[in-house]
Simulated scan of single mutants.
Amino acid sequence: MSIPPAPQVRPFVSDNSPSPLGRRLPAVTAVAVLGVVAVAALGLGVTRFGLLSGFDRGASQALNTLHSGGLGALTSGLYSVLSPIPAVIITAAIAIVILAITRRFRVALTFAVVVAVTWLPSAVMKFLIHRPRPDVTALSHPFAHQPVDASFPSGHLVFVVAVVVASVFLARRGPWRAFALIAGTIFSVLVAFALMVDGVHYPTDVFASALWSVTVGPLVCALCARVILHRSNPRDVT
């Protein structure tokens, strides 16, 4: 009696799998525009009009008191690992893993494009808003190497949430997609917490970062579905 071969584990969709986003381009475009406008409005509010300034300063100072011992080492490590150059390496490494699993270049390319096109334009918003970092003189445990660039939004968190969006988009529907969403959300919250404990970002910075990626990311996914993956069918694969 022969033993049937074990079913293949396929965590990612194929490059011709149908995607609902391909048929919802107008909707995701509208959401992305609203998201960018909301982030810009919040940025102008906190820098020009002092919106939530008391909350931001108080929360930043309170959370920074936790930056000591093992927790401080963990949060500092996360900040270093997710800096721009390591982030590029991480993106390339994940894309290579996806290519090795799927053996489909377009799927791996889509992951890299979604992350990059969601992440990199946020630097323009950072430049335009030009919000100073939290005042190190008011922090009990200032970061060892306080960044000198602008604070709003956080490029670190934009990157992390962009990776989550890309992973959920490419994960096969069912347990794999649920795992990508749940694990990605937990890690994103951890990174957001770490950035505030480090004293390098205000709460409104991290909120704006998450809002940017969850609204802009799906638009990039929809465009990739049409241009790279050629997927526009509203039904999805199982």
Rank of each mutant, 00 (worst) to 15 (best):
V136Y: 10
A150Q: 09
V107I: 11
I182W: 08
F207Y: 08
R10E: 08
F49V: 13
P142E: 03
L181N: 08
A112S: 06
D135M: 05
L139F: 01
L211V: 14
V148N: 13
S151G: 06
L139I: 12
H67W: 07
L25C: 08
V107L: 02
T102D: 01
F207Q: 06
T204R: 00
Q61K: 09
I101N: 07
T75H: 04
R104W: 10
L51R: 03
V206A: 00
A100Q: 10
A178R: 14
A208Y: 04
H130R: 13
V191H: 05
A166L: 08
Y202H: 06
V200P: 00
T185H: 00
R48W: 11
A166Y: 05
P147I: 08
A116H: 07
D149W: 08
V160D: 02
L170M: 07
L170T: 02
V33N: 09
L211C: 09
F179H: 01
A38G: 08
G69M: 04
F49E: 11
T185D: 07
S80Q: 14
V113I: 13
A95W: 01
H141P: 06
V161R: 02
L34C: 10
Q146P: 13
H67T: 10
A59L: 12
A192D: 11
L42D: 06
Q8A: 15
P20N: 06
A6T: 14
G77E: 00
G43R: 05
A116S: 10
V88C: 00
D135N: 10
A150G: 08
S167W: 08
F187N: 02
R173Y: 12
A6S: 13
S232L: 11
S76I: 07
S232H: 13
W176L: 02
G70H: 11
F55H: 10
W176A: 04
A73M: 13
G199M: 00
V9A: 13
L139K: 01
A59S: 12
G184L: 04
V160M: 01
G184W: 00
R57W: 12
T185L: 05
I182A: 11
D236Q: 15
P153Y: 03
I182V: 15
L219V: 04
L170S: 00
R106F: 11
V200N: 00
S213A: 15
T47V: 14
V214K: 05
V36L: 04
L74Q: 04
Q8D: 12
P142L: 05
L82W: 06
T65K: 11
F179S: 06
A87E: 06
N16E: 15
F55M: 12
S83A: 14
V114S: 02
A178T: 15
T110R: 03
A192R: 02
I3T: 15
P84S: 09
R173V: 15
L99N: 07
T238Y: 14
R10G: 10
T215C: 04
D15I: 09
G69W: 07
